[in-house]
Amino acid sequence: MTAARSKVNRCILALVGGAAVLAGGWTALTGLARRGTVSWAPPGHPGEWLRQHEPSTAVTMGLLAAVTAAALWWCLAQLRTTGPSTLGLPGAGTRVSRRSLARAIAADLATVPGVDTARVVLRGTTADLRATVGLRLATHAEPAEVIRLVTQGPLCRARTATGVRLGTDLRLTTPSHRARRAR
């Protein structure tokens, strides 16, 4: 998930949410006012207003078709999480397979003491490559120490190997296990 898409997602949620509040609130309040339950009714009626400014059928249909297509496209865009299958390396014209690079970094991470398993997902393009790293720690590993080792070892090597900044999100978990009492 790139930062830009996250922002667009949140804007869409806010816009649709705001529209839903206005439309739903208007429907409920107008209905209640007509039944006499509440004394205040929101002014106007969008249907009446629209009758006076009725757009041509072509315009209406064009708008609706555009909204439908855009919404479907955006829905499908959420499925694309990573990007193209190969990454160009800066400087040279070489391309590297995104998955094998991610696997190689993950294998390197798994050699760090205290790391049980590592999963790496590379997102974005060479200009803004980001890695999301899921680290499952060994049972008695100390997170701060593991992070220090991971940053100085595999992450530093990955940044040197690719020649990009590689913004990295480390996500640490410890496996759930039974409490072992010291006897």
Binding site: R10, C11, L13, A14, V16, G17, G18, A19, A20, V21, L22, A23, G24, G25, W26, T27, A28, L29, T30, G31, L32, R34, R35, G47
Partner: peptide, 26 residues
């Protein structure tokens, strides 16, 4: 839209609540 219909009033209220949820999520 039959605005005085209770079902429409309820649907409108539910829609508004859903909108609040979306804004909070945003």
């Amino acid at each position: 839209v039959p605005l005085t219909d209770v079902r429409w009033i309820g649907a409108g209220a539910a829609f508004a609540v859903l909108g609040v949820v979306l804004v909070v999520l945003a």
